[in-house]
Amino acid sequence: MIFRTAELFAGPGGGAYAAKTAHFLDKNGEKWGFKHVWANEYDSDTVDTYKLNIIGDENANTVFCEDVRKFDLTNHEVLSDIDTLIFGFPCNDYSLVGKQKGLDGNFGPLYSYGVKALKEFQPKFFVAENVGGLSSANEGEAFIQILKEFQQTGYVLTPHFYKFEEYGVPQARHRIIIVGIRNDLAKEGIEFRVPAPTTPNPSQYKTTGEALTTPPIAEDALNHEFTNHNERTLNMLSFIPEGGNAWVEDIPKEFRLNVKGAKLSNIYKRLDRNKPSYTVTGSGGGGTHMYHWSENRALTNRERARIQTFPDDYHFCGGKESVRKQIGMAIPPDGFRHILIAILKTFAREDYEWIEPTKKLQMSALLKESGNEIVSVVKI
Rank of each mutant, 00 (worst) to 15 (best):
D67E: 15
Y205M: 02
S322D: 03
F3S: 00
K101N: 13
H292E: 13
F121G: 05
H23P: 00
W293N: 01
I374M: 11
I240S: 00
V78E: 15
D93Q: 10
V115A: 05
T49G: 08
F121R: 11
P195F: 06
F126Y: 10
A298R: 03
T300Y: 06
A342Q: 00
D48L: 07
G335N: 04
N301Y: 08
A365W: 00
E353K: 11
L340A: 02
F336E: 03
F87A: 14
E356I: 12
P170A: 14
L222M: 09
H76A: 06
E77R: 05
G154M: 09
S370L: 11
Y352G: 06
S135G: 10
G11F: 15
F24D: 01
P90A: 08
N28T: 09
T309W: 13
C91P: 05
T74E: 14
K119E: 14
I176T: 01
L361V: 08
V248H: 03
I176G: 00
E66M: 09
G209L: 06
F316W: 12
E219D: 14
G286V: 08
G287C: 04
I55F: 13
H36Q: 11
L73D: 09
A117L: 11
H315Y: 06
G102T: 08
F87T: 06
G102N: 04
D72F: 06
F107A: 15
T346A: 07
G286I: 11
V377T: 10
T199W: 03
A246M: 12
L222G: 01
H224S: 09
E129P: 01
T199N: 08
R324S: 09
S112H: 04
Y352K: 08
Y111F: 14
S80G: 14
W247L: 05
P252W: 07
G154F: 02
Y162R: 01
E356W: 08
N59S: 07
L234F: 08
T74G: 09
N61A: 10
G132W: 06
R302T: 00
V194H: 02
F347T: 00
W247R: 14
L79I: 14
D184E: 15
D104P: 03
I240M: 07
L110H: 12
V375Q: 09
G287M: 08
K345P: 10
I82H: 12
A330S: 15
C65V: 08
K31L: 14
G140C: 00
A16H: 03
M290Q: 12
E7P: 01
G33H: 07
I178R: 06
I331N: 00
K119R: 14
D313E: 15
F150Y: 13
K51P: 04
L299T: 00
D334E: 13
R256C: 11
S294R: 08
V156A: 04
I331V: 15
A218S: 13
T358R: 02
E120G: 02
L118Q: 02
K31F: 03
